[in-house]
Structure formats: structure tokens, C-alpha cells
Simulated assay, not measured.
Amino acid sequence: MVAEKLAKLQSIFRTMDQALIAYSGGIDSTLVVKVAQDILGDRALAVTAASPSLMPEDLEEARLQAAEIGIRHEVVQTHEMDNPNYAANPVNRCYFCKSELHDTLKPLAAQRGYPYVVDGVNADDLHDYRPGIQAARERGVRSPLAEVGISKLEVRQIAQHLGLPWWDKPAQPCLSSRFPYGEAITVEKLQRVGRAERYLRDLGFQNLRVRSEADTARIELPPEQIRSFVSTTDLPSLVSAFQNLGFAYVTLDLEGYRSGKLNRALATAPTGS
């Protein structure tokens, strides 16, 4: 099944003369970049959007991965924080983020002569609340993984099959996803969350989130790591570090990390404009 879906994915790129890939450095878009490079070579271009919602180390990882794959790679600046519809953090915040992204990439693609802009949306994403997908569709962006019906698990299986060392890389959505809908997002808040997560990664925890609500930080870790975290971490030092970043309170989510947890509040969150 993996080989069959990989063949279908490759066939999509064989129909493209040139393609520009919206490349975040996550495993989904990394797989797309790998296949595009294998099929199109110099006729493929990976472009990463840099903004305050992307941690600097994630941008550097994207650079290193693109270099190892061998694809041409560029970085562009996006300015979603300048859009009050985005900064207000409504439930469809991702729509405004992807609108800004593809309103930046589409003119670039046209200027360079790329007829296709491609993203890393997979088949599972189509069944989740992802308002950014609508923005991409409105701008004619193609999603080869979703077109082939490749799930997140299959993305990792195919990436491993192709020898990508990042096949099991934890998902790392933008830092704006750490805030409850309706709480305004600022550059300072994004930097505070980013520094808090970097602190935890330096302790050896990789698959995590620091959810921020007002002046409270809520740490989410995989459930199986919670006991070890509590017993081995210097908690007073951690609290002090987080307070130095500007948080007044530091808590641990005993349920553990769950992707999309903030979407539970969709029924009561403001929709924005």
C-alpha cells in the first residue's frame, strides 16, 4: 500500500512542469519536497515563510533538511501579525494565516514561472477543523498528499521508506496555536511561549506544548512522560524560569498532550470577522 501510494504521489509531480512547494519543515511538507525534488529536480522550489509564529530553530531545521534533500530553498517573510483579523485570534485564525502565506507565494510563483503551488495537507487534515485549507483552495493551491489519500501515518511510513531521517519528527504547528481562541496574539506572547518550549526541549522533552492563557502557562507532555517529568525535573527552577519569562503561574496538564485540544472550545469561542 505504501509503495502504491508513493507511486501515485510521484505520478502527480510527473504531470507538473514546475512546482513551488509551501515548505514548513514539518514531515508532511518535507515528504512533498523530497518527492518533488526526486521527480522535478531543479524545476522544484521549496519556500519557507518566516514570521514571529515560527521558532528560529524550526526555520534552521527547515534549511538543513532542504539542503540534505538537495532541493532549492528560499525563505520569504510573511506579515500575518499585521492583520487584525489574525491577531485577534478568532476560531478561523488559520484562514488569515494561510491567506497571507499564499498571497505571498502565488505572486512569487507567477513571477518565477511556476504554474503550481503545492502544500503538505494530508488526507487526515481534511477531516479536522482546518480553516486554512479553505484559503489555500481559494487560491488554487494543490495538495498532492490529500489527492492521493495519504494519511499522517502513511506520510511517516513513506518518509521512512524513502530514508528521510525526520520521518518520526513531532508535529510542530505555529506558535499561535498555543493560545485559546479569542485571546489576542502579540509578538511578545509568541516569543514568551517559544522560549518556554525551548527551555523544556533543552531538558530533553521534545513532543510538548506550552499553552498560554493570560498569565498562566500550561505544560502538555505525552501522558507516559508525566510521571518522569514530575520526578526528575527541578520544578522550582522551572517555575522560576517561566516566571522570568513573564508567566505568573505554571501548571501541568494531567490529561497530557492531545493535538487540537484547544478546538474543544469552538462552540463558545468568538468567530471574528
Rank of each mutant, 00 (worst) to 15 (best):
D124V: 01
I21S: 03
R142M: 05
P173S: 12
P170C: 06
V117I: 13
E188H: 00
Y86G: 07
G246T: 06
Q225N: 14
A7E: 15
H79G: 00
V155N: 09
A136I: 09
L208V: 00
K106S: 04
P165A: 09
R72Q: 12
T233L: 01
A87R: 15
H73R: 07
R201F: 00
E138N: 12
A217C: 02
N89L: 08
F229T: 01
R63I: 10
L164H: 03
N122M: 05
N85H: 15
S99E: 13
I39W: 08
V250D: 03
K98C: 05
Q10W: 02
P180T: 01
E147P: 02
R112N: 01
V250W: 06
Q206G: 03
P52D: 08
D124G: 03
I219A: 07
A123S: 02
N263D: 14
D234V: 06
L200P: 00
P52A: 04
P84Q: 09
T216S: 12
V250H: 05
V33E: 02
A46M: 08
G149K: 01
L9K: 07
A67C: 01
H127W: 07
E188F: 02
V250C: 03
E197D: 01
G260E: 07
L153V: 15
Y199N: 00
P107S: 12
A136G: 14
A136P: 01
G182M: 01
G25N: 04
G120E: 02
G149W: 03
T104W: 07
Q191Y: 07
G70L: 09
H161N: 04
E213A: 14
A22N: 02
G140V: 11
Q37M: 13
K5I: 11
L153T: 15
R198G: 00
G204Q: 01
L254N: 06
Y114T: 05
E183N: 13
A36Y: 05
A214I: 03
S237Q: 12
A184D: 10
Q191C: 02
P52M: 02
V141L: 04
L254F: 05
I21Q: 03
C174H: 09
